[in-house]
Nucleic acid binder design. Structure first.
Lengths: 190, 190
DNA sequence: CTGACACTGTAGACAGTGTCTACCGATTTG
DNA sequence: CAAATCGGTAGACACTGTCTACAGTGTCAG
């Protein structure tokens, strides 16, 4: 439902209601229920689209690197893409991680969210093959890397980072976090 | 409002409504508005209590360490306390980071949340004084450390970590994340 | 061609929500 | 003693999600 995505982007998460979506689409308040079992069902599909966007951004981030880039650089670029995408679509990103409003068993949601995670797993595995954190469980490591960037994305997207740390740029926070989590602190950037 | 905290713990975030709280307290549906300007106001006070709990847990975590523990051990213990508290009160923790339902300008919320953050800043400064990441901005560093553990706490509390990484214990995820973020990977635990 | 049937949308009802207002009985205060 | 304030009640209003009955519109088998 395209209407839902634009409404979400324009008016935020709280504006999402079946009746508002129906009004925006120019149909009666009961019409959406012919296409979705209920609000949670609709939102789950929207959230799944969000995960697809995320996967796509991570995919592209690897392609834009110079051809000889190593696995660590690719993993770092993936983390960057994660955070930047989250901040580009803050309301959508917030929705994606709201179990209370979603149907977590929805097939599309499960498929897209695990596809995104598996992409991170592949990046982490490649980094491990290149010598990074070799004796850790790959999926656990991927989960922790995901957590690290996810925290920054969450807090920044809802403005909870800039409050306590005023005057900092996203670039600063992002590169610092990545250097901490990935241990790539070789070149302090000044 | 004690009733709100128990209702939140027992029935979760979605069960929090002014009318339900009033019923639970045995008063009429309009009574809560004599004490709070509205739902967002009430929830902000509850969220502030959550931040106070967090601060208290971090405080205690330092006290329980052996007397000669270094600043890095204290910082690590603080991170542990953050995640463990979040998981002990998952609904409260979720509420604390939901800008849409809160009044972010509420004095109690601002006071308690920034008090918790300042506590992390002090731990980070002590670690820096002991030689860790000495040439980084302290507040930025504290924000990134907070982000790292916050991501894990968020995902674990809503069950989004165990899904993609089945069979992992919180202890595994927590120690791995702390070792990554703080760079304390000296003793791989097997 | 005709009937059955699935889609898709409409309209009304119902319970639940936050918020506003009017009222009311205490209790405190001038 | 009078007045004002405080805490609670009760009703209204505009929302919400969900359910049901109904109507049009197509498709497809017989």
């Amino acid at each position: 439902m395209q209407v839902t995505l634009t409404l979400l982007a324009e008016e935020g998460l709280e504006a999402l209601s079946l009746r508002r979506i129906a009004r925006r689409a120019g149909v009666s308040h009961g019409a959406p229920q012919r296409h979705f079992r209920g609000l949670a069902d609709l939102l789950s599909v929207v959230a799944a689209r969000g995960f697809a966007l995320l996967s796509e951004a991570i995919e592209k981030s690897g392609a834009q690197l110079p051809p000889g880039a190593g696995p660590m650089a690719r993993l770092e670029a993936a983390g960057r893409a994660y955070v930047e995408t989250a901040i580009a679509y803050p309301a959508l990103f917030a929705l994606m991680f709201r179990p209370g409003e979603l149907d977590l068993t929805h097939p599309e949601y499960m498929r897209e969210s695990s596809a995104a995670f598996e992409q991170v797993v592949r990046h982490v595995r490649a980094a491990q093959d290149a010598g990074w954190q070799t004796d850790r469980d790959t999926r656990l490591l991927a989960g922790c890397v995901w957590s690290g960037v996810h925290g920054l994305a969450t807090l920044w997207a809802q403005g909870a980072f800039v409050g306590p740390v005023p005057g900092v740029s996203l670039e600063d926070a992002l590169s610092t976090t990545l250097e901490l989590v990935l241990g790539t602190a070789q070149g302090d950037d000044r």
